[in-house]
Each structure stands twice: as structure tokens, then as C-alpha cells.
Simulated scan of single mutants.
Amino acid sequence: MVFVIKIGGNVLDDPAALQQFLQDFALINGPKILVHGGGKIATRLGDQLGIESKYVDGRRITDDATIDLVTMVYGGLVNKQLVAQLQSLGCNAIGITGADGNLLPAVKRPVKTIDYGWVGDVKAATLPVDRWQLLLDNGLVPVLAPLTHDGAGHMLNTNADTMAATIAIALSAQYPVRLIYCFEKKGILEQVEDESSVIRFINPDLYAQLKAEQKLFAGILPKLDNAFDAIGKGVQQVLIGHAADLVQNTGTETTGTLISA
């Protein structure tokens, strides 16, 4: 089985939690891919550099200054720190973006009601599965920063959750794949303030019901949309859970929330 694991900003921002996560990630046997974010770090460094962070509905507007910032932070600082830490743990990590080897083709998001600037939408149909296989089959562990390119020389800020799902879908034709979204909660919570209210299994019917009853907090909806899209396109399993539960969630007796068709 191939594990495609996405780690979010709250863990990246906590040195102790990150170190534990990376130790657990290094212990996973077999082919694996780590996809990371880093938005909080980019915002913090942007503030120091006088680059204002602008958002619409929680999505970052990526102007000329911001694409330079996130390319430095995601593709440089965060990515290479993760690679160095994994190498110290005996994990043969290789840091990449979607631009490297054209591993994740994308297009600049078209302007509709909002101009998001240098933001990329992945082109799943042209993802070069053979190049990903080449990395995995040679024992390399890709560590992917949330950046792509537009084919005309411009880097693009790209959603890490979507990138992880796209890779998982593409690889599912050759391998059984488990896509794991790691964040700071135990899973999808029925009551957002109650860590014990984890919903262990969600299928499309239950998802529709929970949304209709407004029992899910808005921030988790994009993850669930990506999860169900991945399941519908061939990914064997999608799991959403706490970063600290990674080892258990790569086994058979998982915790967190398991997404199924």
C-alpha cells in the first residue's frame, strides 16, 4: 500500500508535535509521500517583511509579492527543514514542488468573481504517474510543497489538500492507496468542542445529512469534499485524524474518521 499523508500548519508550527510526527512518519514501512502546508509560517514571515496577507473566504490572495513569499517559505524553508529532519531519522526524503519534473501540472485559476492571483488548479488528467513511480520504486520519499507552475514560467500557490488527493487518485490505478489528512483534531467531530465526539465512519449519505443539519464546522468541508472526490475516483481509503495518531492510522485498527463510498 502507498500512503499519501498531508500535514497541516498547526503541527508544522509546533516543534515538539512536528518532531514526533516526523519520527512516526519515518517508521512507516513501504512507499509513502508527505504533502505539507505552511500558511501560518508564511503569514508570520510576511508580516516581518511587510507583506500583508489577504484572504477571501479563508483563501489566500496570491499577488506578486505573496507568490515570492510562499515560494521561499513553502519550497525553501519549510520543505528543506522537513527533508533535513527526515534524513536525520533515516528516511530518504527528497523535497519537491509540483514544478519539479512537472510532477503536478497545473493552470492559473481563471478570474471569475474573485481574482486569486497566482493560484494554481491542478490538471489531474496529465499527472505523470510514471515519474512518481520512479521516485517510489527507487526508495525515495517525496516531500511535496504546495506549489505548482503554469507552464509559462510562473510559480503558483496551490491547495495542499487538493494536491494530496490528486496524487492519491493518480496512484490508485497502480497501487492500493490510503490518503491520510493529519491535523490537530482526533477526526471529524460531531460537536466541534468535544474531542470525544469523533465520527468514526462517514459515507456520502451521512455526509449529506450532517451538512444539512449544519453539524460540521466550515473549515472541515473542503477536506471532506476532497476525500469523497478521491474515494469516487479509485482511492481505496481516506482517513482524517490527529497527527499524533499517525502510526495507528497506517495500521488496520485505525482511529480518526474513515471515509468510504
Results as ranks from 00 to 15, higher is better:
V73F: 15
G251I: 10
A212T: 12
T255N: 15
P15K: 00
T257H: 01
G219M: 15
I259T: 03
D229S: 13
S260C: 12
G50K: 15
L136P: 06
G37M: 08
C182H: 12
L22Q: 10
T158Q: 00
P142W: 11
G232M: 05
T166S: 14
Q248S: 10
L147H: 02
T148W: 02
Q248G: 08
G95C: 14
V83M: 03
L147D: 05
G75Q: 00
A173H: 13
I240F: 07
L103P: 06
T71S: 09
P204Q: 04
A84H: 08
A26Y: 05
D161L: 14
L136E: 01
G187L: 13
V141F: 11
P15I: 08
D13K: 03
N138G: 09
L140C: 13
F217D: 00
R60F: 14
L27S: 12
N79E: 12
K54R: 04
K215S: 06
V78A: 05
L156P: 10
N102G: 07
R60Q: 00
E52Q: 09
G50C: 02
V107Q: 04
S88T: 11
R178V: 07
G39N: 07
G234Q: 06
G50A: 04
K40D: 14
G75M: 06
L135Y: 09
L12A: 04
L134Q: 08
Q191W: 15
V192H: 02
N79K: 08
F201I: 03
K233A: 13
I114M: 05
L210V: 11
P146A: 05
M155Y: 03
L104G: 07
A16Q: 08
E184M: 05
D229N: 08
S260A: 12
A170R: 07
G187W: 14
D47A: 14
K112V: 14
A125T: 13
I180W: 07
E195L: 10
G151N: 03
C182W: 04
N249F: 02
L86T: 07
A93N: 06
V129R: 03
D150Y: 01
